[in-house]
Design a protein around this nucleic acid. Structure first.
Lengths: 151, 151
DNA sequence: TCCCAATGTTGATGGCGCCAACATATGTCG
DNA sequence: CGACATATGTTGGCGCCATCAACATTGGGA
């Protein structure tokens, strides 16, 4: 999904230094690296799956709707991603006996193992993404991005 | 295309502070704003169209292949976007008499006008995107992103 | 009780990027 | 010159992430 990696292409001046363009490129860079990492070690799982597993690990069993709210993933995409996770036995789904319209989703031991593996892969990618910057610059960037995002 | 704007959703800890996640969110923010801007004032044009117009304005007439290289847009996508731009008379295409397999694309006066309009819209969006930061922080962020992207 | 809200599912759409295949035109090298 | 490779534009398909519409089911509140 990244734009062409090849920076050989001249970028129009009016585009090249714009904040939105830089954010786009930086994002493309990180997505490309994540993609490569998931490709190599993610066993076919994608960002959605990781986010769902992470949410389940952190807050325990939840309904699909809650998972969607907690991860910012649309209900319909939650359904699709959970089907895949269930197929791999990384999560289990059962109907909530209290509210029969609701599915309670639980992460399985295998799911936890997978989550930990992905954690390692992703941590390495974080380092790779930030590699062009010195340690203090990395901290600066993260602080600024955090303020940008939360602001 | 941004992830859900609603930041109410709790984000899993292991995700929330990761550089790739922050870049993703910052990008989502800028894309959402760009989307809204194009929606309101872009007359249905998309990022591809703007980039092509910008490249034509800056470097003058070019073949479609060159446009693709200069903008990082795939040849096939260049074709589609130019069809739309031609339909709106924002660009003109003619066969290169020297190399009959080649189309020479030229921006029209209307195209220039549209480009300037979009420029204004986009400039405003840049300001909005960076609004949470003070002026010196904005400069810092841009410098860091530039190094990240070029590094 | 009746209506409305929430839930899970299916299916479709859009933006952006990628790639394969093809016909056509243009070299280049034996 | 002729065979071969290369560049170009076009078509069509795929993938990822995000969004929305519509629906049946279930539950809660007025």
């Amino acid at each position: 999904m990244p734009i062409r990696d090849d920076p050989a292409g001249r970028t129009p001046d009016r585009v090249r230094d714009r904040p939105t363009w830089l954010l786009n490129r930086a994002h493309a860079r990180s997505v490309a690296m994540l993609h490569a990492g998931f490709e190599a070690h993610g066993d076919g799982l994608r960002g959605y799956h990781y986010r769902l597993l992470a949410a389940l690990e952190q807050w325990g069993p939840a309904s699909q709707a809650d998972l969607g709210r907690d991860t910012g993933i649309d209900r319909s995409d939650v359904t699709a991603a959970l089907l895949e996770l269930e197929r791999r036995s990384l999560v289990a789904r059962r109907v909530d006996p209290e509210h029969k319209r609701r599915n309670i989703v639980t992460i399985t031991p295998d799911g936890l193992t997978t989550l930990r593996t992905l954690d390692g892969v992703i941590e390495q990618i974080q380092r790779d993404v930030l590699a062009p910057l010195a340690a203090d610059e990395q901290r600066q960037l993260l602080a600024l991005l955090t303020r940008l995002v939360r602001g």
